[in-house]
Design a binder for these strands. Structure first.
Length: 424
DNA sequence: TCTGGGGTCCTAGGACCC
DNA sequence: TCTGGGGTCCTAGGACCC
């Protein structure tokens, strides 16, 4: 709706990013099916994908599909460095860069034409420079809205460029499968298929009275808008996360209080450290426990004041997890434990758990624990800043050999706030 | 031998308030 | 004395994204 606009939004998506970096680092891997990961496929090269290998797939299944598959260890630091370098390159063309993840970003180039030419030329230049200077393939979609640009980059993959002219948007969208719409996953796709809807064109023509009972109110109106090609979103350069969490898959094992306590000790330690690094505190703690058979349950509780102290959060998380286990006595084994901190409060307005108003004081009137814990956490944070996170910690905060993924992978997966990056 | 880790948003029921 | 509507917050679960 509104006045017609030119196609100035770019969506740039690095192709099979982790796998491409591995092939860049080791030329003998180029042109071969490779996967990053081990127990599970974190990324697969296009050669591997051709055999059906997909990210998230268990390693044994991937090997069965592709006997030639080479698993390579992840150079997570390199992924971070190269991902940052790509975004720096984008920012040479426009300050309006919205980083969606390590390997994906939106750019608004409406003000860049006089310097760098038309959006399609900018897209071509970006692709060339990322290839020449960093050695990586990147696909780019160019269109009038974020959604169209994103769909276009998916269509462009691998290593391609698709420009959607504003006059031909309907013709571009109509024949595409609904699964290309942002927000349509396997469940929604199956529901739509039952109603005979498989293409975006069919979805755009479907009546809301048909969709709403099928998908719910919010989803049907959102999808309806995207299918009808209405997307009011703008490119946003800075955005703060609304929750901070950590989780860990465990080798299937009986749920015991010590296991829960030590695992959550480690996970809360990580999450709370990030919380404090962002000068924030949380009011809500949510714990997730997954049982064998992938069934999972959550428990959450909300404090009257925001909390950032590791021990206070860990106690709350442990209590919630034990409660969840007690509610399911039929489940003996756990396969995953996770924690998420939400309802975040930042400065200004951050009322840390201080003596006299803190949580601890509800059970221990006048207890100075709130401030003591705050001081201890600050000291631990400071020492870790200087010497690394293993230099110091709570006795219960180590996962030891239980941790199945490298620490660097966890760090890589974190969404960083406010466009803050490690490069200047 | 059925799956990693970090996130966002939505729904539905219940408590509570006016 | 059996009965209204609206709003907000909390909780549990689920779909989806990278």
């Amino acid at each position: 709706m509104g006045a017609p606009r030119a196609a100035t939004i770019l969506h740039a998506d690095l192709d099979a990013f982790y796998a491409s970096v591995e092939q860049l680092l080791d030329p003998s891997l180029r042109g071969r099916p490779i996967a990053v990961g081990g127990g599970v496929v974190l990324a697969a090269s296009y050669e591997a994908r051709a055999t059906g290998v997909r990210s998230g797939m268990p390693g044994w299944q991937a090997r069965r599909l592709c006997p030639d598959l080479r698993f390579v260890g992840g150079h997570f630091g390199e992924y971070q460095r190269l991902g940052d370098a790509v975004v720096d390159l984008f920012e040479e063309f426009t300050p309006l860069v919205e980083r969606v993840s390590i390997d994906e970003a939106f750019l608004d180039v409406h003000g860049a034409a006089h310097l760098f030419g038309a959006p399609a030329q900018i897209a071509a230049a970006i692709r060339r420079r990322v290839r020449d200077e960093l050695g990586l393939p990147v696909s780019v979609g160019v269109a009038r809205t974020k959604h169209l640009a994103k769909v276009a980059s998916q269509v462009a993959k691998p290593d391609g460029l698709v420009v959607v002219d504003p006059e031909h948007e309907r013709a571009f969208l109509d024949p595409l499968p609904v699964g290309l719409i942002w927000g349509v996953g396997p469940v929604t796709r199956a529901r739509l298929a039952e109603a005979g809807i498989e293409t975006i064109g069919q979805l755009a023509r479907a009546r809301n009275e048909l969709l709403e009972p099928l998908l719910g109110q919010a989803a049907s109106s959102k999808l309806g808008m995207l299918a009808e090609n209405v997307d009011p979103r703008h490119v946003v350069t800075a955005r703060r996360a609304s929750s901070v969490g950590a989780q860990s898959a465990l080798a299937r094992q009986p749920a015991s209080a010590p296991l829960i306590r030590s695992t959550l000790g480690y996970l809360v330690d990580r999450a709370a450290g990030r919380l404090r690094a962002g000068r924030r505190a949380a009011r809500t703690v949510t714990v997730r426990v997954r049982f064998a058979g992938l069934r999972s349950v959550t428990r959450s509780s909300t404090f009257p004041v925001a909390v950032s102290a590791t021990l206070t959060l860990a106690e709350a998380a442990t209590a919630l997890a034990l409660e969840a286990l007690a509610a399911h006595p039929e489940e003996r084994d756990v396969t995953l434990v996770g924690v998420s901190l939400s309802n975040l409060v930042g400065e200004p307005g951050l009322q840390l758990e201080l003596p006299g108003i803190g949580l601890d004081d509800r059970s221990r009137p006048g207890s100075p624990w709130g401030s003591t814990r705050w001081g201890v956490d600050r000291s631990v944070d400071a020492i870790r800043d200087r010497f690394g996170r293993h230099a110091i910690g709570y006795a219960s905060s180590s996962l030891g050999e239980v941790d199945r993924v490298p620490e660097a992978f966890r760090t890589l997966a974190e969404r960083r706030d406010d466009g803050v990056r490690s490069t200047p």
